[in-house]
Amino acid sequence: MITTIDLEPVNKILAQIELSEKLTNGKIKPAYLIPLLQDIQDEYGYLPRKVLEHVSTISGIPLSRIFGVITFYEQFYMEPQGKHTIKCCRGTACHVKNGQKISDTISEILGIAEGETTEDGLFTFETVACLGTCFLAPVVMIDDQYFGNLTNSEITKIINKYSPKGDMP
């Protein structure tokens, strides 16, 4: 599949970087790399290789260093993500409240392991260390929406709502 990547958005992001984040020669400070990648990912939904090469040329930060950073942090993606992201909490409170089972069920329903995206591009499944809503354990977050005190049958119903036949947008 050949897709062309529009460099317009990344150029806009690069142009908006504040002076205080730049070196005297006008190049971007390497310390600003992570917020920069976060902004790019917010815009593109992931970090396309083409865009990264462009950033490396403009900023002078070696591509190897950019890749090093991206592969270290869990929240950077180099592949397009699903339309909906399902985050299943695997924190301690959720574990005590059967979180493992919820995670297994999601995996089973979607037919993918954690970190993967369904073939139709609808769902990406992730597990996270704690969503900070332990009082609702076990918790799952779909996009910005929290679902708490879950049982296996409830999570099945909720995921169905997000499917093409369901009533969620």
């Binding site: 992570i34 869990e74 929240q75």
Partner: peptide, 18 residues
């Protein structure tokens, strides 16, 4: 950006340094 170890102070500083 999603790394538990970045709560450790020297790791956090490394992360701030990009």
């Amino acid at each position: 950006a999603g790394a538990f170890v970045c709560g450790e102070e020297t790791a956090l500083i490394a992360s701030l340094e990009g």
